[in-house]
Design a protein around this nucleic acid. Sequence first.
DNA 1: CGATTGGTTGATCGTTATCAACATCGGTGG
DNA 2: CCACCGATGTTGATAACGATCAACCAATCG
Lengths: 246, 246
Amino acid sequence: MSVTTDRIVQPLIRRLTSTANPSDEVIRALADLPFTVKSFEPGQDIVRDGERPEHCAAVIEGWLCRFKLLPDGGRQIIAFHIAGDMPDLQSLHLGVLDHSISAVTPCTVALIPHEALRQRTARLPDLAALLWRETMIDAALFRGWVTAMGRRSAYGRTAHLFCELHMRQRAVGLAEPRHSPMPLRQTDLADAMGLTSVHITRTLGALRKSGLITLQGRTLTIHDWDGLCQAAEFDPSYLHLGKANG
Amino acid sequence: MSVTTDRIVQPLIRRLTSTANPSDEVIRALADLPFTVKSFEPGQDIVRDGERPEHCAAVIEGWLCRFKLLPDGGRQIIAFHIAGDMPDLQSLHLGVLDHSISAVTPCTVALIPHEALRQRTARLPDLAALLWRETMIDAALFRGWVTAMGRRSAYGRTAHLFCELHMRQRAVGLAEPRHSPMPLRQTDLADAMGLTSVHITRTLGALRKSGLITLQGRTLTIHDWDGLCQAAEFDPSYLHLGKANG
DNA sequence: CGATTGGTTGATCGTTATCAACATCGGTGG
DNA sequence: CCACCGATGTTGATAACGATCAACCAATCG
C-alpha cells in the first residue's frame, strides 16, 4: 500500500474497523481497491437523483449530505456523511438513485468502480458481509431519523442530531470529547430536521440558553453532554458502534 | 421442494423475484433454507428492542410492524411488512436489535437460522447480493418515510403511505387494482405518521371528501389513483420494484 | 466600500395536539 | 334476544408549536 493510497484509503478502513473487526485479508482487499479521487465544492452535486452511477463514493475528507428534492422546491436532507462513509453504497445493487448527494463543505471522495466491488465481494464473502453491514447501519440511522421526526419536538430533535453527529465523529477520531466540527448552515439543519431556518435559530438559542451547547465558527461545543443526551432522549445503540457485532 | 415447504417459502420467493431476477441456483438455495414456522396474534411481539435473535423472520401471512418505543410511552412505527418481507434481516449482521417488531394482524412467519443464512450467503455470492439488495430497499423505504415526515402535511403524508402500501401489495399479488387490504387501526396509522389518532380521523375524512379513497372494513378502496398520487406527490421509484436493477 | 450570504428578532397565522364528550360496533353473558 | 362492555372511531373547543412574512443585523468577500 503506497503512501498515497494509504492516505486515501485510511479513512474508510478506520471507519470500518471502528464498527467491526475485519480480517487482515479483508483489509488488504479494501486497500487494494482501485479508485479515482475527485474533489467537490460546497453545494456541488456528487451524484443526482435518477442517475445510474458506475462507482461508489467513499468520503476521504469533508462533509456530504444526501437529500430528496420535492416538486415545490423543498429539500429533505436524509443523512450527513463524514470521512470514511460510503454514502452511495446502495447504487451497487439498486441501480437508479432515489436521491441526490452533494457536498456540504469542500470535500474529497474516492470513486470505486462497481465492477471492482462486485468482483471482490463475490470472491470474499467476509468483505461482502462487512459492506452489507454498512448498509444495515445506514438503514438504522434512517430509522433513528424517522423516529426523531415523528415523535420529537424541534428542541429534542435538534439535540438528537447533535448527539448523533458528535458520536459518529468521535468514533472515527474526528472530534474531541467536548467539541466537534459542525460545518452546517442553519438551512442545512432546517432541511435535515423538517423545520424552517427561522425556527432553527430559535431552537439553537433555546439549547444555548439551557446551557447544553453552543454552535459557532463551524464547531459545536458541548457544555453538558448528559443534559444534551437527556434532552434528546439519546440512546446510541442505534448507531451500532459496538464492535462485538452490536 | 415439498408441498408444505412450497407454501411456506413461496411468498418470499415471489417477493424476491418481483424486484430482482435471481438465478435458479439462488432460488433453489432459498427453497432449501431450513426454518421453523410460528404464528402470532395481533399486538404480540415477534422480537424486541435490545434482543439478539439467532434467526431472521420471513413473513408468510399477515401484517407486521416495526417500531421504536420512546421513554414517554410514545411509539413510532417505522415500517409495515407483508407476506414475503424479511423485517429483521438486519439482525444477521447487526446483532442487537434497535427496535421491536410485532404483529398487526394474526400472522405466520418462517424463522430462518442465522447460521444457515451465513453458510449459504458465503457459498453463493449471488444470494448474498440478492438479500443485501433487500436491505438496500429497506433503507430506501426509510428514506421515503423521512422525507414524508419532514416535508409533507398530514394530508399528503397519509396519501403517500396508502400509495406505498398499495403498490407494495400489488407487486406481490396481494391487492387488486383499486382495492387493497389495509388492516390498520387509526392508532397504527397515527403512530406511523407521527400524528395523533384524532388527526388521522380528520385526515381520512378529508381524503374521503376529496374523493380519493375510502377506508372501511379493513380494506382500502382507491377511487382516484392519479389524484391520490398527486396529493401524495408519489414517485414510486424509491420502492425499487423495477427488475432491471432499478 | 457595497454587495451578498447567513443569522436574528418580532408579529401573526395555520396546522396539529390536547382534552373531553359522545357514537358505533362486535362480542359476551344473562 | 337483549343489555352491557370494551375497543375503536368521531366531533367540537381550545391550546401549543412551528411556519410565514418582514425587517434588520453581522460577517465575509470582491
